[in-house]
Design a protein around this nucleic acid. Sequence first.
RNA 1: GGUGCUAUCGUCUAGUGGCCUAGGACAACGGCCUCUCACGCCGUAAACCCCGGUUCGAGUCCGGGUAGCACUACCA
Length: 529
Amino acid sequence: MERRVRVRFAPSPTGALHIGGVRTALYNYLFARQHGGDMLLRIEDTDSTRFVPGAEEYILEALDWLGIGIDEGLRLKKGTKEIEAVGAHGPYRQSERREIYHQYVKQLLDSGHAYIAFDTPAELEAKRTEIPNFQYDARTRMQMRNSLTMSQEEVDALIAKGEQYVVRFKVEPDEDVHVHDLIRGEVVINSNILDDKVLYKSADDLPTYHLANIVDDHLMEVSHVIRGEEWLPSAPLHVLLYRAFGWQDTMPEFAHLPLLLKPDGNGKLSKRDGDRLGFPVFPLEFHNQKDGSVSSGYRESGYLPEAVINFLALLGWHGSGDQEMYTMDELIKYFSLDRVSKSGAKFDYEKGKWFNHQYLQLRSNEELAEMFLPTLKEQGIECPDMAMVAKVIGLTKDRVNFVPELWEQTNFFFVAPTEYDEKSLKKRWKEDSPKHMQELIALLETVSEEEWHSCREEKNENSETVIRWHLDDVVMPWIAEKEYGVGIVMNAFRICLVGAARGPHIWNITDVLGKEETLKRVREALSRI
RNA sequence: GGUGCUAUCGUCUAGUGGCCUAGGACAACGGCCUCUCACGCCGUAAACCCCGGUUCGAGUCCGGGUAGCACUACCA
């Protein structure tokens, strides 16, 4: 009997969504789509003290930006920033499922799989300092203040008195618990090392992750749990919980993903690594209302969502061949859990840049022009000629990784140089350069406005099509006749127009600037250098 | 400390016993192209953690070491 594939991404609203979480969401999404199943989104907000306002909206917006679609649970209403809940297994916020958890806590209590404990955090802390490696389990639970060591009357009295308590899972000792993992195979852990995990706390009337997670996955008919490797050690506990509830026959399959590691050294990638090494660790910029911090995001740094997706997909997964570029549809087609690596992947930010470069080239000049607008505005360029913007982007996009970098490559198209790069001057501005420029001005004056912009296609010796500008036909013979050096004249000319020895082919620059502006810049340079 | 997971170029990885003198990509380096800076193209350097075993044959299977990481909360 094949079960319908239903997977879930279940983040906690404790801040911005970490890039590792994004990858987990992506793999879940790819798996669901490939199997024609459902991708659910559930919010695990069982820790009321760690809730950060705006985090939920942030998570949904990030997934939406990346094109990771949600079929069921919480999502953004199409084209808006409004949150909607869809599906018949709601509510999808654990904080709204209190009543549901109550009955399951009761079930475990009634069946003897759980018990009530009154030990205060302070008492537990004292125990831990008193006994090294203290663990609340079969060996120690009979020395603690719980319903196993008290009479029913005492327990009832304490609860009636309003004493805070927790419900703990009663782990039976000396049992090898088997967890089947789709990525790692069989993992066996002895129940002796498991502690009697807290399942429910009366203080905020909320279950802990472990209980809520199992109950919800069961009720929501989740077929596969795809999550980070940090959950592997608690997987046996989860197996035990499924069993305690009598749900072992519909227990989901597990797949524990390798961790995303910091680029240098070892260890889990953290927000601090991003700050330290200068790259975003979050999909979107996040303004944390709780602590006032601001975290940079991939989107605001100029990343294209398809580049982030492709980059992340390959951090821990690889197809069978040498293909590096994958569209979302291709990822859905080729993704498979048995091609996910077992070992952690160091976060290679440089490769991320390369992916963005690749995807940037694939976008049209017009699209990029739109995306470039905010940067232009920042530079004081309001309402530019969009056709011209697209044109200069076409000339320069192959040399940038990010849209904002386009400004460094195109600024001289928008503003005449106000200073001239010293290094370029030293290398390219010769004694004769003023004379050359004077003569060049005179020569260019003779070119008509129409001829100025004209060009034709030609075949070169390799029979490739190249563009031949009319101005080339005017200037080159003059240089040859005067026996000037092509490089000397052209570089001086370039410095006049650009302010430095850089930029696209010179006739592309003169074409965009036009005759009047070009000549103006040369005269200006002559008076200033 | 305990338990678990993992181990191929600097990095992401291909490799599922002979196709491996270990392939691709990023980064690095060199060259070509060229009026400049880039892009691009071509090329170079660069790895099977160690020790045993199984086998005619091991990067690939097994065992043991070692190392790294994760977990070890009334956090998820």
